[in-house]
Amino acid sequence: MPQQNSAPSSGDFPPFQQRHLISIADLKQHEIIDLLDRAEGMIEICRQERKSLPTLAGKTQINLFFEPSTRTQSSFEIAGKRLGALVVNMSVKTSSVTKGETLVDTAATLNAMRPDVLVVRHSAAGAVELLSQKVGCSVINAGDGAHEHPTQALLDALTIRNHKGTLAGLTVAICGDIANSRVARSNLLLLGALNVRTRVIAPRTLLPAGIEHLATEVFTDMEEGLKGADVVMMLRLQHERANGKMIPSVREYYRFYGLDEHKLSFAKPDAIVMHPGPMNRGVEIDPAIADGERSVITDQVEMGVAVRMAVLDALLQARNTP
C-alpha cells in the first residue's frame, strides 16, 4: 500500500470493504466506527490553513442531484476538492429528466464517462440502489426519498461524539416528521448499531408503521420524550404536511412539537440541540434555541465535510486495493 505524506490518512486504516455507501444498514459496527475515526482525521485537515490531502488526485467525482440541495451538494463538492478529485456537478432539472424513466439511461451515459465515484440524490426510495447496479464506479447515496441519508447520520454521530466525548450510554431523541424522514431512518440504524438509546417523538400521523422496532422508545408527548435526553435532534417539517391531512396547522404543530425553552428544559441540562437543516424557525424550533448556545447546528455542517471526505477516501481506497 502506498504511504501517504500527510499525517492522518487512509493508509492508517485497514482497507474499507464496501464498494458503495447506499445504506447505513449495509455497514457493520466496526465499519461505522472506522468511518467516524477517519473523519476525525479529516477535521484536522479541514482546520489547517492548507486544507488538502490529495489522495483522490486524478479521480473524477460526479455529483448527480435529481433533487436540488445546495448544502449537501456543496459539502460533497468541497470534500472531493479537498481530496484533490475533479468534481463535476450535474444538477438534473426535473423538467429534462422527468421521472425515473431515464434514470437507468442516465446511469449508462455517466458510466461511459468513467467517473470514479457518483454522489446521487433522488426523490424516490431505492433509486440510488438501482443506479448503483448499472454503473461500474462507487456510488454514494446523498439521500433517496424517505429511505436513507447515510452521510447525514455519520456526521450527526461525529458531532455527538465530539461534544459528548463518546456515544456510549447516551439517549438521543429524534423529533418531528419521522414518517417522511430519511435522516431519521439513517440515524436510528446507525445509533442502534452502536447501542445508543434512541427515542422518536412525533404525532401519530407522522410515525411510520413498525417504528417501535427501529427506535428504543416511541413517544407522542414532547415533554415525556425529552426527559433525560442527552441529544435533541429536530427534523424539518415540510410545510405541505401542515395542510389539514396530517397536521392541522403550523401553529398547533409548534405548540405541541416545536422545540422551545420549556420543552427543552425537560432534557438534560447539558443536552445539545441538532438539526439537519434547512431549518424552519418558528415551525419546529424556536429561533432563540436554533441560534443559542446549546445548538450545535453549525458544527454539524463542519462535520459534514469531514465525514464526506472520509467516505470518499475510504470507498476509493477500497477500490484501489486488490
Binding site: A125, D144, A146, P208, I211, L214
Partner: peptide, 15 residues
Amino acid sequence: NSGLFSTVLGLKGIP
C-alpha cells in the same frame, strides 16, 4: 404492505 419493512425501505405503505 404497510409495516416495519415498508418503513425500513422508506416506501409508503398500504394498510
